[in-house]
Design a binder for these strands. Sequence first.
DNA 1: CTGTTAGCGCATTCAG
DNA 2: CTGAATGCGCTAACAG
Lengths: 371, 371
Amino acid sequence: MTIKEIAQLAGVSSAAVSRYLNGGYVSEEKKEQIRKVIEETGYQPSAQARILRTKKACLVGVVVPKINSESISRVTAGIEQVLSRRGYQMLLASTDNDPDKEITYLKLFESYPVDGIILIGTVITGEHRKFLKNAKVPVVVVGQYTKYANCIYHDDYGAGKAMGRLVAAEVRKGQTAAGTAVQKAQNADVPEDGGYRRKVAYIGVTKEDKAVGVSREDGFRSGLKSEGIMLEPDYVRTAEFTMDSGYHAALGLLEDKQDIRIISCATDTIAAGAIEAILAYSRQNVPHTVADSGTRMQYILNHSGIRVTGFGDNQFLKAVTGGIPTVHFGYKTSGIRGAELLLDVIERGEKIPVEMKLGFRLEEPKEEWER
Amino acid sequence: MTIKEIAQLAGVSSAAVSRYLNGGYVSEEKKEQIRKVIEETGYQPSAQARILRTKKACLVGVVVPKINSESISRVTAGIEQVLSRRGYQMLLASTDNDPDKEITYLKLFESYPVDGIILIGTVITGEHRKFLKNAKVPVVVVGQYTKYANCIYHDDYGAGKAMGRLVAAEVRKGQTAAGTAVQKAQNADVPEDGGYRRKVAYIGVTKEDKAVGVSREDGFRSGLKSEGIMLEPDYVRTAEFTMDSGYHAALGLLEDKQDIRIISCATDTIAAGAIEAILAYSRQNVPHTVADSGTRMQYILNHSGIRVTGFGDNQFLKAVTGGIPTVHFGYKTSGIRGAELLLDVIERGEKIPVEMKLGFRLEEPKEEWER
DNA sequence: CTGTTAGCGCATTCAG
DNA sequence: CTGAATGCGCTAACAG
C-alpha cells in the first residue's frame, strides 16, 4: 500500500494525501474521501520513505551492554521518560558486552533513521573514539567519561572511596572488644584460622572499563588507605559483570585465603555471586555433625563471619537478603539528563559540549549487616 | 556524504561505487580509487536508502514488555544467537507492560525497515489481533498462544499443575509426624495460630495474560485439587510483574491470614517480593526479646515456617537464597525457535502456520527448602 | 566491465 | 486549495 494507490482510490493526488497525513491544506470534501480510503485499506505510510525525505525520525537509538540489568533498566527508564514526553520513541540495541558489536550497532543506528544515539558506555576503545568524533548524528555517552561526546557519568571514585572507608570501619570494629563474641564463634568454624578474620578482599572488573574497573577500585583503595588499611594483591580478583563470574571469583578467594573478613565487589551482581559462593563454600566446609539440613544453613549464614559489599543498590538483592552495604547511583537521573542533553542537540542544535558528573549515596542496611 | 559525491571524487559513476560496495564488477583500478576516497571521507552508505530500494534490512525488531527481566533476556539471547549467525541484527523496543505502547512499537517496526518482528507476548488485545492479521511483515509471537501468527509458547498449565502437586505434597508432609518438631517451633512464634500452618496462598497476575495469569494459575489449582487441596479465594491475590508488587501482595496476605504455610507466586520476581515481605513481617512481629540483630534475622528465617515458590527459575534468586521450588521454562529455546521460524518465513517464504508448545522442568532445591 | 536511467515511497516546491 | 514535478540516497536493469 503506497500513498499513490491511496490517492488513486480516493481520486486525488498523492500530494493531497500527504497533506492530509501531515496537516496541510485539504478541503473537507477530499479529506473525507481520503479518510475513508485509508480506513478501508488500513494504509500506513512508510516511515522509512518519510525519513529519507525529512531527515527526521523522532527516534533515538540506545546502545546498551546488556539487557538484564537493574542499573541499565533504570537508565533506560529515565531516557524513555523524557523521550516519550517529547514525542520520541526509543529503540534499544544490546551488545552483550562485546565492544565490536557496540561499534556495529552504533553504525547501524547512524546509517539508520535515528535522530540521535545514547551509548551506555563500558569500554571506550580507539574505535569508539573514532566513531564519536565523526558521528553524523548527535551522540551522548552515559556512564563513562569521554571528551569526544557529551557525557554523563557517575562519581565512581568518590563512591569507591566512601565504600572503602565504610569497610575499613567495619574491619576495625571487628578488632575491638565489641566483636569478640562473634569472632570466637567464627574461630570455631574455621579452626585453621589462628587469628581473627580481618582481611579485605576485592572483586573488580576489567581495567578497560574506566568507570567501574579503574575509578571505583582506585577510590576503594584510597578509602581503605585513608583508614590505614591496604588492599593486598593476593586478595584482589577480576570478574565479568555476571553473577556467575562473581561466584567463581569469590570461591577462589575463599579457597585460597582463610582470613577474609569482607569481600567487596565492584557491582551488586558480582556481590550476589559472592554471596552464593559463601553459601556454597561454607556448606561444604562446615562439618555435617554441626547440624543438618535447614538448621545447618542458618548456622552457616550466622557464623561464616564473611561480609559482602557491592555497588549499584540492586533492589532485588536488597529484598531477598535484607540488604548489603552498597552505593546508590542516580541511574535514572543520568538517563533523564542524557536524553535531555541529546534532545537539546537534536532540536535546538546546542553546540556547547557538556560533561556532567552525578553524585551517589552510600547505602547501609538499617539492621546489622545480615550477611 | 552521498554515493554521488563519492563517485564524483573518485571520478567514476555512482553505480560503480554501489557495485564496489556490494561486490559487483569493478576494475581493480577503479576499485582502488574508490577505496581511497571512501577511506578519506569516512563515507558510510545510508542503510535507509538502501532498504528503501531493496526491501531488505537484515534486521528484526523484538518487542518486549520490559528490559530488566531474566526470562526475557534469556529469550532475546536465544533470538540474538540465531539472528547473528544468519547475518541479521536485532533491535529491541520495550513497552513497560503497556499494551498501547506495544501496538505503537509494533507499528513502528512495521513501517520501519525491519524484515520481521518478534513479539514477546503478555496481553493479546483486539488491537493486537487486528495488527497480527494485517501485518505487512512476518511476525512471530513468543510466550503466548495465538492463532493469528506463528507462535511459540510454554506449557504453563502443565507447569502450574506440577507445582500444585509439589506444594500439595509439602503441605501434606507438614501434617504428618515428620513435621511435628518444626511445627512446634512455629507455634511458639505465632501464638495466635491455634493449629498448624497448612493453608496455601497464591499470588497471580492479571487474567488478561492468558499464559501466566490464566493457564499457570488454572494448572496450579488443578494440581492442588488432584491432591485434595483447594485454593481458597481469600488466599489469592493479584500482583503486577514486579518484586515490589509481590511484596505488597504477600504482606497483605500475611497480615490477613495467620495460617499460611506456602505462598506460591506466578513468577520468581513476585516470589522475591514475597520473601522480602516475610522477612519484613516477621521482623516486625517476632518479639525483640527473642534475640537481637543478626541472630534474630536467622531466627526469623528459621522459624517463620512460611515457604515460597515461584516460576521461571531465576538464577539470581537461586544464588542468594539457595533456591526455592520453581519451574524452568526453555526461554532461550523459545527465542531460538522463534527466530528460526521468523527467518524461515522471511527467507524461504514459508507459509504453513506453526504453533509450538515447549515443555518445562520442575526445579526443587537440593537441600531442604531454605525459605 | 561501465555509465545511464529509472524508480523505491514520500514530502515539498511551484505553478495552476 | 490543488496536482504535477522533483529529488532524498541508493540499487537494478540496461545498453554500451
